[in-house]
Simulated assay, not measured.
Amino acid sequence: MAKITNHLFTDDKKRRQWARARILSSSAKLISTKPISDIKVEDVAAHSEMSRASFYKCFRSVEDFLNASAKKSGVELLKPVNSVGSTISDIALRTATKTRIGIRMMTSVPLLGRLMLKTEWPFGDARHKGYKDIQNDIAAGIEQGYFTDMPVEIGVNLVISALRVGVQDALNSKHTEGYETEIVYTLLLSLGVDTKRADEISKIPFDQLPALPKNGLVGKIVSLVS
């Protein structure tokens, strides 16, 4: 018997994918013109020129929409972070450097940082590329003896907490001049790096920030605020 294809379902799925992409692509302009906490469904619909019904076919709520925008931005930021991190063989130094880059990127464009903090970033979803990236580094660090033998998820949560606290403090101007060094030092100690090595790594100068993406959602946000 020939396989029966439900063309209506297929078409609906494609339309939802198209509508979702259109709505997400409009988020950069929206969050650059209105406080994130004040965004409503009507605002999203108006900026994307889509109906409320179309919005609710793609997202459960404004929070769901913002989380999707932040996750998309997070994936886009992995490339510049890894462009530096992948060249470092020392896992402890790599983890510290990538954490530092993440903090600086989020704070160099405050609007981007506020979007991330408004959502579930850094994401605890094990399916997210950012989570998997941290997970791989922690697993490698444990295997190579750089980090304490612990459940990988604990190590991931330590990195995630350091990222969030670092960005939050920087955006709220609650940090001292050496806050980044302190955060990296504390993170390395919590992962099991000895005091001397953690102190050395945390004090290594890092002045060159990789270029932010020029395309995608991040590129749009940067172009709108620069």
Rank of each mutant, 00 (worst) to 15 (best):
K203F: 00
P205S: 01
V184N: 05
P210L: 07
Y179A: 12
L191C: 09
G178E: 10
S173P: 00
S202G: 06
D194R: 08
L163E: 14
G192M: 03
T176Q: 04
G192Y: 02
L191Y: 09
N172Q: 13
K196T: 11
P213G: 11
A211E: 12
Q208D: 13
L191T: 09
K203L: 04
F206W: 02
L189Q: 06
N172T: 09
V165M: 04
I201K: 07
L189K: 10
L188K: 04
T195R: 12
E200R: 06
P210W: 05
Y179N: 12
Y185E: 11
V193L: 11
T181P: 00
E180F: 08
L191S: 11
T195C: 12
S173E: 15
T181I: 08
Q208N: 12
D199G: 07
Q168F: 12
L163C: 09
L209T: 00
L189M: 08
D169F: 14
N215L: 11
K214S: 06
L191M: 09
E200A: 12
G178D: 15
K203Q: 11
T186C: 05
L209E: 03
L171P: 14
R197E: 07
E177P: 01
T186H: 03
R197I: 00
V193P: 10
K214D: 10
T181Y: 05
D169K: 14
E177N: 15
L209W: 04
A170K: 13
G166Y: 09
L209I: 13
T186E: 05
F206Y: 12
I183C: 13
A170W: 02
P213A: 12
R164M: 02
P205L: 04
V193I: 14
S173W: 05
L187I: 07
L209A: 03
L188E: 01
Y185F: 13
T181Q: 15
V184K: 09
R164F: 03
D199N: 15
F206K: 04
L212I: 11
T181H: 06
K203V: 00
T176S: 11
P210Q: 04
T176N: 08
H175W: 05
G192L: 05
S173V: 02
L187Y: 05
K174C: 06
A211Q: 04
I183F: 03
L191D: 07
R164N: 03
G166V: 05
T176H: 10
T186I: 07
K203E: 08
K214F: 00
F206E: 07
R197D: 03
L188N: 02
L171C: 10
L212K: 15
D199I: 01
L209V: 06
E182Q: 15
Y179W: 14
T176P: 00
R164V: 03
G178L: 07
K174Y: 09
L188G: 04
G178T: 08
L188Y: 03
V184C: 10
S190V: 00
K196R: 08
N172L: 15
Y179T: 04
P210K: 12
Q168C: 07
H175E: 15
P213F: 13
E180Y: 08
D199L: 08
G192F: 04
K196W: 01
R164S: 08
L212D: 13
F206R: 05
N172A: 15
A198E: 01
L187V: 05
V184Y: 05
I183D: 02
L212M: 15
Y179I: 14
L209D: 02
E177K: 15
Q208T: 10
T186D: 10
Y179C: 10
D194P: 10
K214E: 13
K214P: 00
R197K: 14
K203M: 06
D194N: 15
D194K: 06
R197G: 00
